[in-house]
Amino acid sequence: MSGTILEVENLSVDIPVAAGMLHPVRGIGFSVSRGETLCIVGESGCGKSLTSLAIMGLLPKTARRNADRIEFLGRDIRNLREREMARLRGGSMSMIFQEPMTSLNPSYTIGNQLAEVYLRHVEQSRAAARDRAVFLLEKVGISSAASRLGQYPHQLSGGQRQRVMIAMALMCGPELIIADEPTTALDVTIQAQILHLLAELQREFRMGMILITHDLGIVARVADKVQVMYAGKTVEEGPCETVFDAPMHPYTQGLLRCIPIPGRTRRGERLGSVPGIVPNLVGELSGCLFRNRCDHARDACAGMRDDEPTRMGDGHAYTCLRAPGEISGELQAAEAP
């Protein structure tokens, strides 16, 4: 597809730890096109952040990355030097992290920090950088933007800092935004404001976006495509509506049954659960790693090839040895009164 911005194939990350080799990301792939939002969803520790860091070349020093392909704007970026990667980051590929205070420098003014990315990546004109900063601060809903340029991060509220982060991510007109839990630390009203804003800006500038979150509500509302991760693997992926309407993997189904949904779950009613805990990802791993928590697990699951998803067409695929007929039969039975 010509609109493809990023293509990743068979990406894995290994990190040597005291107990042996940790395999936090185990061969995942996806693509993002212009104007498209891909959501990566999963519980803590499933490898979401490492996946995004791996793409941006920001993995911890000890980590090893392998991939059959990481192509950004048609260019293989696997072997770029750090200097070239740094030029991409903050330029055509930019990111928004969960905690704005860790990415904003407390000792420089907002104006300085916004200008700095622009001067580094786009052009050497202070006046142009300032104009762009004011334009974007207004865009992200910061009132009296010009007078904010002289403020320091600690003088802003959490929501305002996150807005500044978004403005900073947009300074150089990126093609791709990678946002890792961008609203997790924020209040619900501010979360809605920020996500609304991101979606609007993304549409306006036709950017691709990878949004990483553990919140299924956010995924449903913003994603075009969804990728459900478990233990470093994609267990299900597909168009947003399809995945929410007809989830095929027991893990996706389980997650959806866990959350109270106003209007669907009744007050005080028992919520579904996914008992058990995630497996240890150190050493040799084989078979379906969800099997210690899966209601449908059987002997064959221990020998399942987890690199051969069942494809349903439409880009919907899941990695489980249960046949589509078996699963949809059950879903229908469950919905019948």
Partner: peptide
């Protein structure tokens, strides 16, 4: 602001 998991709705 509550984001229920309804894929037919956007962010309010």
């Amino acid at each position: 602001s509550v984001l229920t998991p309804d894929p037919r709705l956007g962010v309010p």
